[in-house]
């Protein structure tokens, strides 16, 4: 058989394509469930880590419902969309959607981007967890960042990547890089400033963290990711702040009413007293 004849070449190529396709898709189908459960557990593990709960992957399934109380999905106005769970939102698709709500050229389902939000309770305190996704140097980067109830101070952050350079950009998934986010704030005098991964060092700035030497592009990717994702939640932050202000205002009102009632009671009792005098 002449190995170099055209007909043989085509035949060989065709058979090779079929064999490879069968091997790869067969493997993919057989292993899909095992892989998916690993990925799911890892996601739960990361969400838990983002509020400081460190468990190994097997325990994640058990601890997850203990700490994570709500899995909300918001729209661009910060309103809760019913019947959707944050866990099912595929962020890699959501980040590609523009949120130009009035652009009629984009079909309606694609105009509204879904914003997942997890609410957890750790040691009696409420924490808000926002999932992140962005671009590193060689591929996607992602993570979770959690905030205290003031929706301003960072409680903890977790990052991960697919293909960043080991020792450089890949350092974003080490606790060394992640721990310094705790205590940083994203608002400066009411204005949203996000958090900067600063090349050369943060110098103690409350809105900056140290960048990674040699991993500038990945560090910039983290900065952009934080900025881009967090600003989508600003309408929700505003709504939460309104609620808080309204609650505070209600408290003030009730307190003042109570004081007025007390004063009235005092003056009535004093009238009584004066008459006796």
């Amino acid at each position: 058989m002449d190995v170099n004849k055209n007909s043989y070449t085509f035949g060989f190529a065709a058979i090779m394509v079929i064999v490879v396709a069968v091997i790869l898709s067969g493997t993919s189908i057989i292993l899909k469930d095992a892989q998916y459960s690993n990925v799911e557990l890892e996601k739960k593990q990361n969400i838990l880590r983002s509020v400081g709960v460190n468990v190994n992957r097997d325990q994640a399934a058990i601890e997850y419902p203990v700490y994570i109380k709500e899995e909300l999905v918001l729209n661009h106005l910060g309103e809760i969309i019913n019947n959707l769970s944050a866990f099912d939102v595929d962020l890699s698709k959501e980040v590609k959607k523009s949120i130009v709500e009035d652009d009629e050229n984009i079909p309606l389902e694609e105009r509204t981007s879904l914003l997942p939000l997890y609410i957890s309770e750790v040691e009696g305190e409420t924490k808000y967890i926002i999932p992140l996704r962005g671009k590193g140097l060689w591929g996607p980067i992602w993570g979770f960042i959690s905030f205290n109830a003031d929706l301003n101070t960072v409680f903890a952050a977790v990052f991960d990547h697919k293909a960043e350079t080991p020792g450089l950009g890949a350092e974003i998934n080490t606790s060394l890089f992640q721990n310094v986010f705790q205590g940083k704030t994203i608002f400066e005098k009411g204005e949203f400033v996000s958090i900067f991964v600063q090349k050369g060092g943060s110098n103690g700035d409350i809105h900056k963290v140290d960048g990674i030497s040699g991993g500038t592009i990945t560090s910039d990717g983290v900065t952009d990711m934080l900025n881009e994702r967090l600003k989508r939640y600003l309408p929700y932050f505003r709504l939460m702040e309104d609620n808080r202000e309204k609650n505070q205002e209600e408290e003030i009102r009730l307190t003042i009413e109570a004081v007025n009632i007390d004063e009235k009671r005092d003056s009535i009792s004093n009238i009584g007293k004066r008459e006796i005098d």
Binding site: V3, Y8, T9, V20, T27, A34, Q35
Partner: peptide, 30 residues
């Protein structure tokens, strides 16, 4: 002895890529 000379680069690449992807998939599952 079976690989046609004209497509040998592609064949080699396909073998390498398939092997690597197979290893990656099995590791990811187990």
């Amino acid at each position: 002895k079976l690989i046609p000379s004209r497509i040998r680069i592609i064949v080699m690449l396909v073998v390498i890529a398939t092997l690597v992807i197979l290893v990656d998939q099995i590791l990811k599952a187990y």
